[in-house]
Design a protein around this nucleic acid. Structure first.
Lengths: 222, 222
DNA sequence: ACGACATTCAATAAAATAGTTGAGTGTTTA
DNA sequence: TAAACACTCAACTATTTTATTGAATGTCGT
């Protein structure tokens, strides 16, 4: 094999990984898996992709070595292969944000329309939690909350929010969070809460980033 | 726009960036641009891609916001858009290495066949340079050397190595380096030098990584 | 202003990727 | 052991990406 041929092979191998990352559905899946381990069915529902298609996308990710599987009974759970994959996804997402003006406009518009740009940074949140100034609400589905959540957070899944709104008191500010900056459930939750006269904010990033910053978390035993 | 639609748009936007990264030629171009700013012609030659094709790949990268251009006379120079792009490429390359066993085998094989696995880390190199224990040879094309090189390095482009071999003395060890870990000129150079009885090593990574580690460099004024 | 040169553009054909459907595998539950 | 369920596979079509070719654009030197 001469040098040129060798180089081609090499960049072809590298492109196997980047090709796996080149599809919007697979990015959404990756973003979801940044939260933990989920079944194909769960991923399919939450990313709104037909099951067969989801399965195929997951296999592409697996062949590229980005995700891994564990079988539990009739379910097959997918998870990110390593910390390094998570880190790479974070770096890529960051680049996407900064290099693509449209994304930022999109997010800003969305939040503006929802009349809420009340973002709070993780540092601020930590401070306020320490002083007991806020209620912290995890709006992700309960499965995800159980697998790990920010310390002191209570679970109130977005789907149940409307019915359980009365559980919230307005004697303190409320901070919501979900998976990451692209997870919109927290935004929707803030929007609903404000309508009810509550003082609500959303954590700027989300649980995945909180984890990455090595801030305090808790897990629930089943 | 409802939430689902919004999410699709968002991941589609993000995928614009990853799509641009999903082609082996474009990765090789990016790896080259990690060294500095080059003309289309130069990139075309060094990555062994027809000019028209190179131009088109470069435009894909440009549309994705990964590279930028400056016109100088009849040449158009392409460069990475920002530090962040370089950093992302490094992280991706790293992931590729660790997640793709074939790449590592490929590199090992290549070097084994060349009978040289004498890699030296940047820390070691710094130490040895301080003690004047080694000659440091930059084997990249002279253009790249002029744009910036490791402090104390002399230029001896790989292409001229055979004819200028006698300029090298064997009273000290020799360390070669080129662009990055995937740049094979340094390996080829070590191989040639060893045949001539010189004691040669290659820097594990290359100039781009040296830069990223903020180690001492020099530039030449034209 | 003309020819030489670097780059881009447009059009086409070939190849790779994605979504859809229905059948097939493996595991649990009754 | 059969039915139910979660997932995967295979085959097909539609779409997107890629390489190639030759013409077009823009800049420099004379």
């Amino acid at each position: 094999m001469d040098t040129r041929e060798f180089k081609s092979t090499l960049y072809n191998q590298l492109a196997k990984v980047t090709k796996a990352l080149s599809n919007p559905h697979r990015l959404e899946i990756l973003d979801l898996l940044a939260q933990g381990s989920f079944s194909v069915e769960y991923i399919s529902e939450h990313a709104n992709i037909p099951v067969a298609s989801t399965s195929q996308h997951l296999q592409v990710l697996k062949k590229a070595g980005l995700v891994d599987t564990t079988r539990e009974g009739k379910y097959i759970f997918y998870q990110l292969y390593s910390e390094q994959v998570l880190e790479t996804w974070r770096v890529l997402r960051q680049l996407g944000f900064s290099r693509n003006h449209e994304i930022n406009e999109l997010l800003d518009d969305y939040r503006k329309r929802k009349d809420q740009l009340n973002l709070i940074s993780s540092e601020e949140l930590l401070q306020k939690l320490k002083n007991n100034e806020v209620y912290l609400i995890d709006v992700r589905p309960e499965e995800e909350y159980r697998m790990g959540h920010i310390k002191q957070a209570d679970s109130l899944p977005y789907k149940q929010l409307k019915e359980r709104m009365q559980e919230l008191s307005n004697d303190r500010d409320i901070v919501t969070y979900c998976r990451g900056p692209l997870c919109l459930m927290a935004d929707e939750a803030v929007s609903l809460m404000k309508k009810k006269g509550l003082n609500a904010y959303r954590l700027e990033n989300g649980f995945a980033d909180w984890l990455a910053e090595e801030k305090p978390v808790e897990t629930m035993n089943k």
